[in-house]
């Protein structure tokens, strides 16, 4: 029923008004006296060395790519699970084929060392 989606937007509208409100209210009462050392990036009291937008390990990119692969698989499984009883044994075996291909891929990336964090 499409009208059932309306309250969610109503809810979001209320939150969108209610959440910035304390930020604005606090602006009226809070002190505001910044100083040079307060405004420095926090690095445990040492003067910052180098930019923070440096390089970081390639592992994070690999995790992101693996996530896309497996999350698409999860999304593909959801409608199948809901209609599982209607599809019966046939649907189950079909999905086993799909999962089988995926598991082979999973074993391959495991063997390649993509899951190692070194």
């Amino acid at each position: 029923m499409p009208q059932n989606y309306v309250p969610i937007f109503l809810f979001m509208a209320v939150i969108a008004v209610m959440i910035p409100l304390p930020l604005l209210l606090a602006k009226l009462v809070r002190p505001d006296n910044p100083s040079k050392s307060k405004l420095m990036p926090y690095e445990c009291g040492i003067d910052p060395v180098d930019s923070a937008r440096g390089r970081y390990t390639v592992r994070y990119y690999i995790v992101a790519i693996l996530f896309v692969v497996f999350d698409v698989e999860t999304i593909f499984l959801f409608p199948w699970a809901v209609k599982f009883k209607a599809l019966g044994m046939f649907g189950f075996i079909e999905m086993l084929v799909f999962l089988g291909i995926l598991i082979v891929g999973f074993i391959w990336i495991w063997g390649k060392g993509a899951l190692e964090w070194v």
């Binding site: 304390p22 930020l23 809070r30 002190p31």
Partner: peptide
Amino acid sequence: KFMFKEDLVPPH
């Protein structure tokens, strides 16, 4: 207390 604390937005 959260309301009355200084809300620091660093320039960087």
